[in-house]
Design a protein around this nucleic acid. Sequence first.
DNA 1: CGTATAGTTGATTTGGCTCAACATCGGTGG
DNA 2: CCACCGATGTTGAGCCAAATCAACTATACG
Lengths: 250, 250
Amino acid sequence: MKNRRKTPLDSIKFDAESCSNDARLKILHDLPFFKGLTREDIINIHSFFKETHYNKEETIYFSGEESTQLCIIAAGSVKLIKHSYEGQDTLIDILKQGEFFGTLDILGQPVYQETAETQTNACIMKIDSRQFRAVLQKYPLAAINLIDIISERLKSANEMKKQLSVQNVEQRIAFTLLKLADKAGQQKDLGLLIQFPLSRNDLAGMTGTTTETASRIMSHFQKKGIIKTGRQWVAITNRKQLEQLSGYKS
Amino acid sequence: MKNRRKTPLDSIKFDAESCSNDARLKILHDLPFFKGLTREDIINIHSFFKETHYNKEETIYFSGEESTQLCIIAAGSVKLIKHSYEGQDTLIDILKQGEFFGTLDILGQPVYQETAETQTNACIMKIDSRQFRAVLQKYPLAAINLIDIISERLKSANEMKKQLSVQNVEQRIAFTLLKLADKAGQQKDLGLLIQFPLSRNDLAGMTGTTTETASRIMSHFQKKGIIKTGRQWVAITNRKQLEQLSGYKS
DNA sequence: CGTATAGTTGATTTGGCTCAACATCGGTGG
DNA sequence: CCACCGATGTTGAGCCAAATCAACTATACG
């Protein structure tokens, strides 16, 4: 019997449950930037948000649109994409439950710098950025937490910048797979599965290479038994070795 | 008579005047993140800072040291450098009067991620990061301003990330020259002069290439009459064309 | 099933890195 | 003031990683 291999990714279960009022409150409560606030504070803050449901692969906003909203993922996953007008798209990041995106500043850039689209069905909590600032003024602790979070992201972006300039494609892909696994990895029979659809093209966009090269390297990794991969999915079977290949420093 | 060309850069004048108490207060007052605060607030905040004078090319801190200080440049310019243990250094940024560096967060990374060294004689205002957080708690407006500033930097870092992955070296160098000119350009007889020493090596570090390639491209630019350049200095003579080469989008 | 999408694999080309030799600038001390 | 020397910049030749171009296969979905 021929084994017809299908995607091992969990199908997206998405009921009202996963985005209930209580669930959303809990998500806000667990957010790093509301750490240290009381339940009442959270409930108050929650009232400023409104949630929207999206289907798979819907666009939340386009790059170039006027930027007014801060978004937090209550359920599902979201892709941030930078378009270039030569048609080259770069996948900036893939975000999961509890992460935020959109705009933080009223001043500064008046338009979104990237396109946000859902990768799965999703529930997004939105707040107008002006209102969000009011919240931050009212809860200085939240503002300080937020500073920590952004400066963390800034460091990571600088790290990535350096990666891009000094590492070769193999190292960059290894590194990116590890980062994705940290974010969305789930231990399964076939290995540490990255729990969302991830094509060669996505990977190429994230590492600044081409689909073909990404494909070659992934095949190579699979041949060496480091990963198992198929259409739109990747599982890491030998994390150690992948770390070595990524030029990971202890 | 042979014209012995010397550096057209202004020599660094640096007297007590440029870093007097009043001057420092004015700098704090003009900082984007203290925008909207009263003079009294500023004076109060100023009392938390202590200033240090540095000579040219002194190290303010090394990457890997315990990070405790937030630094603001009262006078002079500072280079931020990332070392890699293969000896490859990347120039992350060059900062001028009024810009800040060092650490913002108590949590997160406990050590500096980069090395900071003065490029010219400089006066640096320092504050312990814990104290700075206290200041931010006391003046939520400052915290919010800071969020704007950091998220601006984050955007710029993401921009650069994309640049690195999709643009070729010529475009990256053109883009970087423009950014430096925006920051430190001064209109002179020979063109828009970037007002600090900038070697081929620095430029290579900022754009993720090698000294040789940077040199070739700079020669090329000069031959085409886009820039004038010499030892450690660059002046832009045809901004329009440089913008075109950089893949600048309108 | 049949078709569209995703992935693979090979051949060819090329941008930019490496290595190497040389040219210039500018500061220093005789 | 000039000769020297180290730092900085230039230029060429060869090479390699990865892009490009192209033909093909496998998978999933209706």
